[in-house]
């Protein structure tokens, strides 16, 4: 998994490539923990994300909860299989998916 972060003023764009599963989720969690201060808008660009497991979903949910308090969060570019997971798990109702 590769994580790229781009900050523009109060907008942080996080690009995730590869698999976000039990082994890689803690890495993303650590990355986010250190960079969400002062962020008004968090964008997850996941067009190259191949797979997301429940551990990955948990990180997204945590981020969503943080952003609910200080701004908003957008997830964009989800591919078909990832989208299916969002649907199955009901995350489509919670996340702001574009």
């Amino acid at each position: 998994m590769t994580i790229n972060k781009t900050r523009e003023n109060e907008t942080l764009t996080v690009t995730i490539e590869g698999r976000l599963d039990t082994t890689t989720a803690p890495q993303l969690e650590a990355e986010l923990k250190s960079s969400l201060d002062d962020i008004k808008k968090l964008v997850f660009d996941i067009k190259d994300l191949e797979y997301i497991s429940s551990a990955g979903l948990r990180v997204l949910l945590s981020a969503q909860k943080v952003m609910n308090k200080q701004g908003n969060m957008v997830v964009k570019g989800a591919n078909e299989s990832v989208m299916e997971i969002f649907e199955v798990t009901g995350f489509v109702d919670i996340l702001n998916i574009e």
Binding site: L61, V88, G90, F91, I94
Partner: peptide, 9 residues
Amino acid sequence: KHGFVIGGM
């Protein structure tokens, strides 16, 4: 019909 995960919200 799916609902959201338990413990999430």
